[in-house]
Nucleic acid binder design. Structure first.
Lengths: 332, 332
DNA sequence: GGTTAGCACTCGGTACACTCGACTGCTACC
DNA sequence: GGTAGCAGTCGAGTGTACCGAGTGCTAACC
């Protein structure tokens, strides 16, 4: 563990580096608030911090730069950050004005997060909700195609196209709809949901096709994810190589989703550099938080930026937005 | 107009520059196929081309680089390009395998385009289809909320949340659904669609709220647009400034959509640099094509890249994909 | 007259030497 | 233990020289 002084020096280095993106020298640290020793003493301590792996020198005769371990210590010893007034207001305004479909709201929330933090943001939509069915309906489109439309108690609508057997009459379709409506109202859709037979084989076939379409997609379904502010990544790094790598990752929605989930599962709010487990993100950090609907873990929001991002700001923004979003989605 | 030789020289310059991204000198041009004169002659002609605005010199004693006018001439005098066998196969495979919801298909088509061309790609989803209604239904969610779900003859589903007046009973909701079903089957939804009164004021209120929700969104609705391959933009430019600017544009879906529409409206397939009408895209070009559903203009696809993109390849890819996509969406 | 070879010239890019300044580590002193 | 001072290191910036790719021009050539 670090003693009081070392930790103050480390904090000063991290804050200065976040601010300037330049290696910070003992002189700057000595003149930082909270550090009341001379630059020579700071140098001694910094040499220690480097030996312990919290700092490193890009080259001799340069200032120090935090390592992953240094950032980690910094965020772990952050006192609970508050969102600046202006931003808090922006969030309040946003959720006061916000209305309409959940999808649109999530997408706009992502944009909000990105604006608040000046980082790239990610909002993962709720997974297959365990909401109950309110309505289910089979509608024919052409001669051999139909659409199964299911409305859930949380207002979401699932839609799937299915093929209809040659010569399926409207009455069969109506029968299937009626059968499903009769048996599925208020029920939670599971992969193994089965319905009693109707006595008519063709109708039963329609019913099972419909259910298969609705439930079958779950294994490999690409969870909806709203990524915004990718352009800001280009501002955060000046090595174009890094920008390429990071953009490449952000385009692979699957990777993004499992990355966030993974971090949450490990009980973290912040993953720094290699902690993310994704090689191209070695120079990035992410800050995440789950959001709830009616007290149930629903989805995840997060921001992605360089390891030298403004952690206090990012943590505060993500926390506040996930709170407000939970409230908003819970009250409907 | 340019004579045969000048146009051959211009073509050689453009092709070489697309390939190498380096200013091309008279020597290279002289040794290009189709140009059978000495480098000195080429120099004379190039001076002419520069005077006429087709080429420019980054600085004295450098090779020449095509201007917008040069690229324009190049694409206008391209003989109909064919897609290389490998890519054609890739497209065939894709559309053979493609299935499922239209949304997913469009998103994957965008990815395909990006892969084919190694450029950023854009697919604009069909606007509010003038498909006819197949089914319309009002479903209650909570005490004061409901969802209007409309299924159209092309298989698309529109969903809108509405507020229900305090104390709306299930029978009113059912009546409204029945009324709409009775009057709207096979009808095209317009902003001014009205239904005859039912005789019950509360039911009529529900009906008009539902219709308003379904039709009202059209003016400012953000058309769905699938952008892929933004990371490739970072590869195309080495000035990070440019990358930032272009990514910024690509994030503004509205701008992207109207850009494509505008180009199509002007009857163009290619817009180069300032022709795009968007300042930050001065170093970019776009190649677009509309796609149809049942012979009706439905949406637009396109690719975005640097002005020195591979035009023949991009044109071929966009043309083939829009054709196949039209076929696929038409047959359902 | 159009084409070409030859030549002088231009200018960006690279390599190199040099300086400057921001650091550090160390040592001696308080 | 803390600090001042100092020698040493190294990157960044600058000036100079050089090289080579490429040009424009002119004179010769077919």
């Amino acid at each position: 563990m670090l003693d009081e002084r070392k930790s103050a020096i480390l904090r000063a280095v991290v804050e200065e580096y976040i601010d300037t993106a330049q290696p910070v020298g003992s002189g700057h640290v000595a003149s930082a608030p909270g550090v009341d020793v001379s630059s020579a003493t700071v140098r001694n301590e910094m040499a220690g911090l480097e030996a312990e792996g919290y700092l490193r020198q890009p080259h001799t005769s340069a200032g120090r730069v935090p390592t992953e371990k240094g950032y980690r210590f910094f965020v772990d010893h952050l006192r609970q950050p508050r969102l600046p007034g202006r931003s808090a207001e922006q969030v309040r305004d946003f959720f006061a004005r916000a209305h309409g479909e959940a999808e649109q709201m999530l997408s706009e929330t992502s944009r909000l997060l990105s604006n608040l933090t000046n980082l790239a943001s990610v909002v993962v939509a709720p997974g297959p909700a365990d909401a109950t069915l309110r309505s289910i309906q089979l509608v024919t489109i052409g001669a051999t195609a139909g659409v199964v439309v299911a409305v859930f108690s949380d207002g979401t609508v699932e839609k799937h196209t299915i093929e209809l057997p040659e010569g399926t009459g409207d009455e069969r379709v109506a029968a299937a709809t009626a059968h499903m409506t009769a048996h599925l109202g208020g029920v939670k859709l599971e992969a193994r949901t089965m319905l009693p037979a109707t006595g008519d084989a063709a109708t039963d076939d329609l019913v099972s096709r419909s259910l298969a379409a609705l439930t079958g997609h779950q294994p490999g379904d690409p969870e909806h994810v709203y990524v915004e502010g990718t352009a800001r990544m280009a501002q955060a790094f000046d090595a174009i190589e890094t920008v390429r790598a990071v953009l490449g990752i952000l385009e692979q929605q699957f990777v993004v989703v499992s990355l966030l989930r993974d971090v949450i599962d490990r009980g973290l709010h912040v993953a720094i550099g290699t902690e993310t487990g994704v090689a191209p993100l070695a120079e990035c950090a992410i800050v995440v938080a789950p959001y709830d609907i009616e007290g149930m873990r629903a989805g995840t929001i997060g921001v992605l930026g360089p390891t030298r991002m403004n952690y206090p700001q990012a943590l505060a923004a993500v926390a506040v937005v996930s709170d407000r979003l939970s409230d908003r989605l819970t009250e409907g």
